[in-house]
């Protein structure tokens, strides 16, 4: 669905651009190709590491590690899983739902989904291409802090901690 929209938008924009100015459009396509080519190596690295990690960390392993733990430890474990993994929302949130149904507190689920979205160790090869290594690492550390804080507030709001 997302892909179809993206494809349609790109095709329409490209046709309009071609009709309006052929030279400009050619320049744009050349630019796009050049940039895409430069991204190939870090992209390959990212997808490969993501695939290897996913082969060893299954959803079962995650839920096993999060259900039988003290809340604090479970939340930190969840943050660790979330930081090293890269999985799309349509897998992550159903998993969150399953965890919830098996009694995992919201603070733990929050730590998992927030770090999943905001922190990406496997994305660093790509991120450094744009932001530089130092800023990429700093951004990930800051966002890890924000994700943990978000989980903490979630735990308080649901009355799971400090009550």
């Amino acid at each position: 669905m997302e892909f179809t929209i993206l494809l349609a938008v790109t095709a329409i924009s490209l046709i309009i651009s071609l009709i309006s100015d052929r030279k400009k459009t050619e320049k744009a396509l050349l630019m796009a190709m050049k940039r895409f080519r430069k991204l190939l190596l870090p992209l390959l690295l990212m997808v490969l590491s993501m695939t290897i990690i996913l082969a060893f960390i299954s959803p079962e392993l995650i839920s096993n590690n999060l259900t039988e733990q003290k809340t604090g430890i479970a939340a930190l474990t969840a943050a660790l899983f979330g930081s090293i993994m890269l999985i799309p929302g349509f897998i992550a949130f159903p998993l969150g739902g399953i965890l919830r149904n098996s009694g995992v507190p919201y603070i733990v689920i929050g730590a998992f989904t927030s770090t999943l979205m905001m922190v990406g160790i496997v994305t660093i090869p790509v991120e450094r291409q744009y932001l530089g290594l130092k800023v990429a690492i700093v951004r990930n550390i800051i966002y890890l802090g924000i994700a943990l804080l978000t989980a903490l507030v979630t735990g308080i709001a649901y009355g799971e901690i400090f009550v």
């Binding site: 892909f3 924009s13 400009k24 940039r35």
Partner: peptide, 16 residues
Amino acid sequence: KILPLVFILIALFEVW
């Protein structure tokens, strides 16, 4: 599948 389209859109944005 996705990235070439993204890069084309970005490049069009930049020239226009």
